[in-house]
Design a protein around this nucleic acid. Sequence first.
DNA 1: TGCCAGGCCCTCTTTAGGGCCTT
Length: 204
Amino acid sequence: MDAVAVIDFETTGLSPAQGDRATEIAAVILENGKVVDRYQSLMNAGVRIPSFIEELTGISNAMIRQAPTAANVMREVSDFVGDIPLVAHNASFDCKFWDAEVARINLTRRQEFACSLLLARRLLPQAPSHKLGALVEFANLPLAGRAHRALADAEMAASLLTHLADELRSRYGIRQVTHELLRKIQGVPKAKVEQLLAKHQQSQ
DNA sequence: TGCCAGGCCCTCTTTAGGGCCTT
């Protein structure tokens, strides 16, 4: 698979439209099933982290006070990923925070997101849960550190994506797994996935 | 004052409701 950037945000809540802000971001560059580069930083957006989020993520208000500004971190991570296509677990969440944070520094996203949650629902329907941690356990993938920290979750999402790409090669005979193909798979109804992959296999 | 995310996906569905997933 060509390079993709798997990203993960930690935030103060679920909705930038409700005033929530990012507190940490990680991005790992995945190339041919290997993580070849990593970026990770806490960020200070000048907002208070609710106590239950501090407990969930282990990211405290004291840690954020000493972190670089959200503007600086978002500039850095935007430079880090460049034009490489993005992937996240439940990408609708990370996409809305990415767009909201870069809009504050007058940048716009240059690439599309693929979603490992939508892909896992289609390619691993037998998994008992499609939460990131549950999928990592289901597929016997290595744990990468403390869950709900950005770098650990980005690393685990990257290994999940590698596993899903392996499934596409071994189960469906897909030779070249591309970001564009992942977007196609996640965009069709679950019932149409087999049909899409059979057609794709024939067209190779 | 009272409201409070939103998109996907299933089903006892489509004139709707509720669970899942992200923090």
